[in-house]
Amino acid sequence: MKLELVLSSILKICTIISIGLIMLGITLLFVKGDSLGYPIDILIDPYTPVNTGALDYSMLYKGLIMLEGLSIIMLGLIVMVATPVLRIILGILVLIFEEDRICLAVAITTLILILLAILLVPRIV
C-alpha cells in the first residue's frame, strides 16, 4: 500500500511544479519580449536553431538567477523529464524497505539503463 501512496503523490507534486515553472517562464518571456539574448521571434519560430542541443547550461544557470523566461521554461522541462526517473528511484527505496529482492533487482537494472542512456548516448552520437 505504501508504494502506491508515495508514487502517486510524487507524480502529482512534480507535474504541478513543472507546469507551474513552464507557465511562469512563458509569461516572463512574453512580457519581456526576449530571453538570454534571443528575441522572441527566433524562439517561437518552428525552424529555430535554438533547441536543447544548442543551449549552453552555464548560461541557463545564470539566466535562472536573473529570472530569464527561457531558463525557467527549461527548468520546468527538466523537472518534467526527471519526474519518472524520480518515481523509479523512490520505488526502489520502497522496495528496499519491503525486502522484495527480485523486483528490486529488476527496478535497479531499469534505473541503471536509464542512467546509461543519459550519460553514454551524448558521447556516442
Partner: peptide
C-alpha cells in the same frame, strides 16, 4: 532525455 541531448527539443 535522448532527444534532449540530440537537440530535438524546441523549448517553447
Amino acid at each position: 532525455m535522448i532527444y534532449w541531448s540530440l537537440g530535438y527539443i524546441h523549448p517553447i
